[in-house]
Measured scan of single mutants.
Amino acid sequence: AGLEKQLAIELKVKQGAENMIQTYSNGSTKDRKLLLTAQQMLQDSKTKIDIIRMQLRRALQ
């Protein structure tokens, strides 16, 4: 149950990062740093999601 909860949280983080990227990508240059931060968050989240999914698969075997 813990892994499913972690996965749900990470999927929400990923969605939030995608929303932030959309918001900041057509903003001013001061938003550039926020855009880069959001892109890093998205990448980190995708990595965590992959790891959690692997752990889930392993647990189900």
Score class of each variant (00 low, 15 high):
Q43P: 00
N19V: 10
Q40R: 14
G16T: 14
M54Y: 05
L42W: 13
L60N: 14
L60I: 08
Q22T: 09
K14L: 07
E10F: 00
R53E: 02
A8Q: 12
K48R: 09
K5N: 05
K5Y: 07
A38L: 13
T29D: 07
I9S: 14
K33W: 03
M41I: 14
K12T: 08
E10L: 07
K48P: 00
N19D: 07
S28F: 03
A1K: 14
Q61A: 14
L42G: 00
T29G: 11
M54D: 07
K46N: 09
T47E: 13
T37R: 15
G16I: 07
V13C: 00
T29E: 04
M54T: 11
L35V: 06
K46T: 05
G2L: 07
I52C: 08
L7T: 09
K46Y: 02
T47Y: 05
L34P: 03
T29S: 10
Q61T: 07
K14N: 02
E4L: 10
A1N: 09
K30F: 04
M41V: 08
R32A: 07
T37P: 02
L36K: 14
Y24M: 10
R58P: 03
E4M: 03
Q61F: 07
S25T: 11
V13N: 14
K5E: 13
E10D: 00
Q6M: 06
A17C: 07
L35A: 03
R53H: 01
K14M: 06
L35F: 06
Q43S: 09
A8W: 03
A59P: 06
M41L: 13
N19G: 08
I49P: 00
L34V: 05
I9N: 09
R53T: 11
I9R: 14
Q55K: 15
N19A: 12
S25R: 13
I51S: 15
I51C: 13
L36H: 13
I51P: 00
A38F: 12
L60R: 14
L42N: 02
R32I: 04
L7R: 06
M54R: 14
G27R: 11
Q39S: 04
Q55E: 04
R58D: 07
I21M: 07
Q39I: 05
D31M: 15
E18Q: 08
D44C: 12
M20W: 01
S45W: 15
M20E: 07
L34I: 06
D31I: 15
L36N: 13
E4S: 05
D44A: 15
M41T: 04
Q61N: 09
G2E: 14
E18G: 05
G27L: 02
Q6R: 11
A1Q: 15
L11M: 13
M54G: 14
L3C: 06
K33D: 01
I52S: 02
K48N: 06
A1R: 14
R53V: 04
Y24S: 14
K30H: 03
L7H: 01
S45R: 00
L36S: 14
E18P: 08
G16V: 13
L34G: 04
I9W: 03
Q39C: 00
Q40H: 04
Q6A: 13
L11Q: 10
I21L: 10
E10M: 05
K5Q: 08
I52Y: 00
I21T: 13
Q6S: 11
Q22W: 04
E10I: 05
Q43D: 06
R32C: 09
N19H: 09
R58T: 09
Q43N: 06
T47W: 02
Y24R: 13
K5C: 05
K14C: 04
I21A: 11
Y24N: 15
G2T: 13
N19I: 08
K48H: 05
R58C: 02
L11G: 14
D31C: 15
M20I: 03
L7Q: 11
A17N: 06
K46S: 04
T37D: 07
L35K: 09
T47V: 07
I52T: 01
L42H: 06
R58V: 04
S45Q: 01
D50M: 07
D44N: 13
L35C: 01
I9C: 05
G2V: 09
G16K: 15
K46F: 01
I21H: 04
K30M: 00
Q6N: 09
L56I: 07
R53A: 05
L3D: 15
Q40L: 01
R57N: 03
T37N: 01
L34A: 06
D31Q: 14
R58S: 07
I49F: 06
I51V: 13
D50W: 02
R58N: 11
T29M: 09
K12G: 09
G16E: 14
K5D: 08
G16N: 14
G16W: 05
N26R: 11
Q39F: 03
T47D: 10
E18D: 08
S25L: 06
L56N: 01
E4H: 05
L11E: 11
S25P: 06
Q39V: 03
E4A: 09
N19T: 07
S45Y: 01
T37M: 12
Q22V: 06
L56W: 01
L34R: 09
K33T: 11
I51Y: 10
L60G: 13
D31N: 14
